[in-house]
Design a protein around this nucleic acid. Structure first.
Lengths: 329, 329
DNA sequence: CTGAAAGCGCTTACAG
DNA sequence: CTGAAAGCGCTTACAG
């Protein structure tokens, strides 16, 4: 292995000088810098991460705690965080949600990472106290129901609900049904589910609209039952907050002879990919995974480099009208 | 931070003894072991990963190089590798495919990981020479077209193609259409695409069946065109090797008044989740992501701990009959 | 069965 | 603007 001593010898300088060229922590004469950089390149030198971490107590590694279920949105977040991390010269350690609080403690205590980004936080999440106790830089993607003293970023789901209703009001709709996340999601206390529902409900009421919401599993029977229940109110529009159920919902509307958007408008909350891969491009409030991931990395790095106050950042929703919504039939 | 010296002091032994208790690399008296383990627990000691890596030249970290696109199967692989890694007390560093060969060199040279698991290898993959030159433990998930001197695991796609045809032959079908991966997949030279097609083609010919295959993008227009082309042969069965296009294919068959399986049998190559989330549970040859991920981790660890010969391991396909295939109409 | 000590490859005060 | 040296927290021969 090529060490800093090899580079120093090749460049005719002290190892510390090589270190300072690399870190930029003190001024180096242009000639010295040039010679050192040349040697680094010529020898293919890469600093030993462990040695660096031992000496500096910085790993330049971020840990991402993700729920590794089959879910395109999760994949979006992982991709966004990975790419943002690299843009900031950080590597990414991947932890799975089911490893629980002990894994977080282990990773921080053994100096495998400097900071954590945590996806899919639940209402009474057992990792929250641990995260707080660790006293390390943390950013949650998602919003816990209680203030936790931790920094978080999320889509403003309340505003997203309102935005959906406004869009449908503008199109003249008077009755809306909502296909929600699976019952398990509500049981786990995933806050975004409640906030989106709240936004819809309040806004529907404010506009004097008929509104009914149902949780919905993502298998055929669950979707059929859900639609049976919703269609009793004779809605002319459906809001779907369940990416996995989405294709089934569309297939089932079709089966019932309800054309989108002629007979039924559909607004979905999902990734743009999911929205545009079906037969009819869907009007969406998209989950800005790329932006949230990037933001999370930036905020966690700000915490690493200087101390900051815990804050909650909610991104405003953006509704993109596509072919699945139209004026009330 | 709690160090090995703190533990040693608390237990009244030398630091080296604590180290040996942890590693099990020499015999320790039961009393000493007990006292040391107690101190470790009481103090909440976690060895410093960097220090350990520096002293032992082992990181206990595996690097996974994944294509982070929106794809449930990729997610399956990532989840499988992550969980298998933890079962072997390894942590996981996540690299993205688009970081290219330099990232691999960087990670190995700077001792961030001991070994690599690489997904989504292409025919003329620029990472292959680098991987070989690194001389580190590597397992590819997928099969390069040329023998590379690297170990790999994959589904036996040729056999998978044959299996699909046999299943349909048994049901009396005489004409089969195949909805393939996107043209870009063939252009990238993803070997599994060619091998699956080969298996289908050869087997169809051997059974004297009509067979036509088409690559297919995963948007509505592409699917419509693809089906237009395939249906000219009046197939009674479709094999779909394109998870993203799958829901669109089903929707489009429906639109054309073709009932599954009454008018058209469908066999899909995809994850079980994708197969069972639609209105009709699909007959599949499933991609055994969990098994492949686990196997890859085991093989790479075998390489780390003792040297081994490069080998290629192909898992036999398993066809699961579900509701989407039936006897020829 | 256990200890004392060298050494892994860096960073960073200390000194000039 | 640069160097010599201590020290980060482990592991592992060496010794007994």
């Amino acid at each position: 292995m090529v060490t800093i001593i090899d580079v120093a010898r090749a460049a005719g300088v002290a190892p510390s000088t090589v270190s300072y060229v690399l870190s930029g922590k003190r001024s180096i004469s242009p000639q010295t810098r040039r010679v050192v950089e040349q040697s680094i390149r010529r020898l293919g030198y890469h600093p030993h991460a462990g040695a660096r971490s031992l000496a500096s107590s910085r790993t330049n590694v971020l840990a991402l705690v993700a729920p590794l279920r089959e879910d395109l949105t999760v994949m979006d977040f992982v991709a966004a965080v990975a790419s943002a991390a690299r843009d900031h010269d950080q590597d990414l350690l991947l932890l799975t949600k089911d490893e629980g609080p002990t894994a977080l403690r282990r990773v921080i205590s053994s100096a495998l990472a400097d900071a954590m980004i945590v996806l899919d936080v639940e209402a009474a999440d057992p990792r929250l106290p641990t995260l707080l106790a660790l006293g390390r830089p943390v950013v949650l993607i998602g919003t816990p129901s209680q203030p936790t003293g931790l920094t978080s970023v999320d889509l403003d789901y309340t505003a997203a609900g309102e935005r959906c209703v406004e869009h449908l009001v503008d199109l003249g709709h008077r009755s809306i049904g909502m296909v929600g996340p699976a019952p398990a999601v509500y049981q786990r206390g995933v806050n975004s589910a409640f906030r989106f529902l709240r936004g819809l409900t309040d806004s529907a009421q404010a506009h004097g609209m008929l509104f009914r919401a149902r949780p919905c599993g993502h298998n055929y029977d669950a979707v059929r039952d859900c639609l049976d229940a919703l269609l009793r109110l004779e809605p002319t529009a459906l809001v779907v907050h369940n990416e996995s159920a989405l294709p089934i919902v569309l297939a089932e509307l079709h089966r019932r002879g309800l054309r989108v958007p002629a007979d039924m408008s559909v607004v979905a909350v999902c990734s743009d990919t999911a929205a545009t891969s079906g037969a009819v491009p869907l009007t969406t409030v998209s989950i800005p995974a790329a932006e949230l991931g990037r933001l999370a990395v930036e905020m966690v790095i700000r915490q690493i480099t200087g101390s900051t106050q815990p804050e909650t950042r909610l991104l405003p929703p953006r509704l993109t009208p596509r072919a699945s919504t139209a004026s009330r039939p």
